[in-house]
Design a protein around this nucleic acid. Sequence first.
DNA 1: ATGCCGCGATACTCGCGA
Length: 258
Amino acid sequence: MKIATYNVNGVNGRLPVLLRWLQETQPDVVCLQELKAPQENFPLQAINDAGYNAIWHGQKSWNGVAILARGLEIKELRQGLPGDPEDIQSRYIEAVINDVVIGCLYLPNGNPAPGPKFDYKLGWFQRLASHAAGLIASGLPVVLTGDYNVMPTELDVYKPERWLDDALFRPETRLAFKNLVDQGWTDALRKLYPDEVIYTFFDYFRNAYGRNAGLRIDHFLLSPSLEGRLLAAGVDRHVRGWEKTSDHCPVWIELGGE
DNA sequence: ATGCCGCGATACTCGCGA
């Protein structure tokens, strides 16, 4: 089963790019972030025509997450993380597909830091960790994937010294990610490529893609029962070079049978 | 060192992303 994550940065604005990439790579499951579309403006017909079922949690202007599946039933488990009924931002959606729990997340950016946005990021991280602990305890096979807005280590930043005070790289953020992983999760890309420079995001300006000035912020965390099923993983870097493309690259993993 | 770019909202500019 091939599972991908892709922060599309506007599902309608990027629709031609999304459809081209789906046609080219045909993942079984796709987690999307930053739909930037209200619930009623999700391009379901085009997604269906491309061969995918979908569930999504939209929001006007910002955020928004979706899970797509090709010829597989999607059983939705939840929209939003538990723990804060006041939180109205669409950043989490979860489903069972092929007996695997798929959590699709868009963790808050958190800049400027410090400040209320950074506090929101750390609070959201805490709620994610609480929920993730429950998923681990369930013993089910779980994939937690999406845009974490965290560079876990210096290897994941083209110029770490420039990012020390940034909400994506501050010590508090890296510690929150480490604490989450230490529950027993496996960072899939790092497990297969422990020492390689891997980027999933390139800024639009200063020719970041051309200069390979990237960040690794889109991640796959695998529950213990899935670690042994990880066959392959990668980044579809070339998609970042397309016209009208997102600033993120699609990232994917391949899982074998039980 | 810096949203320099790009998008959406309902604009003629701003908030936001990372």
